[in-house]
């Protein structure tokens, strides 16, 4: 089947059991996307499918035929870090680094959801057209990405910087 990974079309032959995560890690040697639980409970495997954040561990790769997948490896451009990657460094938004690619991909997908006006469980007014990226909004929306080192404050700081910069731009 044909699938696009980080802008490159790839032809892969797969066992239908193979998850999108294992396709990336074991077949394409793209190890940036992490396996933390393989049960949809930690968010370490988050990738973007046509711009939407999903859990690649719960995704059978065959279901994503013809789709465009972006992983952490596709974020930097011409050797320059994505602004969010740089913000994670600046705010020390990680320690061991294992949940980090998932946090970053999730945050990119999440920022698009906010920009689109998708509400969250803590959005006070469901009818609101514009969602403000408050810390609680970001915390709720990032709660599907576990971090065990306890870098939560730095992660939210980094995302806040990006969301407010983008909102201002």
């Amino acid at each position: 089947m044909l699938i696009t990974i980080n802008g490159r079309g790839m032809e892969v032959a797969l066992d239908p059991r193979t998850s999108l995560l294992d396709l990336l890690r074991e077949h394409l040697e793209l190890h940036g996307t992490k396996k933390g639980c393989d049960q949809g409970a930690c968010g370490a495997c988050t990738v973007l499918a046509d711009g939407e954040r999903i859990l690649s561990c719960m995704a059978l790769a065959v279901q994503y035929e013809g789709r465009s997948i972006s992983t952490v490896e596709g974020l930097a451009r011409d050797g320059t870090l994505h602004p969010l990657q740089q913000a994670f460094i600046d705010h020390d938004g990680f320690q061991c680094g294992y949940c980090t690619p998932g946090q970053i991909c999730s945050a990119i997908g999440m920022a698009a959801e906010i920009a689109r006006g998708v509400p969250s469980a803590v959005t006070p007014d469901l009818a609101a057209i514009t969602i403000l990226p408050t810390r609680d909004e970001l915390r709720e929306r990032m709660s599907g990405n576990l971090c065990r080192c306890g870098a939560h404050n730095g992660i939210i700081d980094a995302i806040t910087e990006i969301c407010t910069t983008e909102a201002a731009a």
Binding site: R25, H31, T33, K34, Q85, F88, T100
Partner: peptide, 21 residues
């Protein structure tokens, strides 16, 4: 000082034990 391994970690390039070919 920022972490010396920060760029590798945010790029997903830091190799972990299950990722050694």
């Amino acid at each position: 000082v920022p972490r010396v391994d920060g760029p590798r970690k945010v790029k997903g390039e830091a190799p972990f034990a299950a990722e050694v070919p």
